[in-house]
């Protein structure tokens, strides 16, 4: 009985955790992408420029700094896959989708803070890892997006 228990604790439990992580992780990710796409369509009325000049000289009513940020983490299973990937090299797709999710979410949050704006100029985006120096215990990134929202008269 004890032997079975120790087998379960050593192999079964991590396996169970991985299986749970695979399912919930991929479902949550899919759901998140769906919500991002829906909101992107909603918010497509506000163009984002990363230059300082905007076409057409029009009187401006309001200009303000807007920002959006998100901390997003990868799931356990994908982190495990990424670890395997590092043996052979090449593109780590799971991290690509993680950063993509984070960036798009941050941009959306920025836009959602200025729904009445006509455009956003001088857009900048920063990505930083906040769990550095902790042996990468948590595979997460912080994305910070900011710009100047302009509303014309």
């Amino acid at each position: 009985m004890d032997a079975y228990f120790s087998i379960f604790m050593n192999i079964g439990l991590p396996l169970l955790i991985i299986i749970i992580a695979v399912f919930t992780g991929s479902i949550l990710e899919k759901r998140h992408f769906q919500s991002i796409e829906k909101r992107e369509k909603e918010m497509s009325g506000i163009p984002v420029l990363n230059g300082k000049k905007y076409p057409g000289e029009r009187p401006v009513e309001k200009a303000e700094l807007v920002s959006g940020s998100v901390v997003i983490s990868i799931d356990y299973f994908k982190k495990f896959l990424a670890g395997l990937r590092q043996i052979f090299g090449g593109e780590i797709k799971s991290y690509v989708s993680l950063v993509d999710r984070g960036r798009r979410e941050a941009i959306l949050r920025m836009k959602e803070k200025c729904r009445d704006a006509d455009l956003i100029v001088n857009f900048r985006i920063k990505t930083s890892s906040i769990s550095k120096g902790r042996k990468n215990k948590i595979g997460s990134v912080e994305v910070y997006a900011y710009g100047t929202a302009i509303k014309f008269k």
């Binding site: 992580a21 992780g25 998100v70 901390v71 983490s73 799931d75 356990y76 997460s140």
Partner: peptide
């Protein structure tokens, strides 16, 4: 955050 890390997604506390 470590628990949330299991399934991935946004870490609201950190945000």
């Amino acid at each position: 955050a470590s628990l949330k890390n299991l399934v991935g997604g946004e870490l609201k506390g950190y945000t």
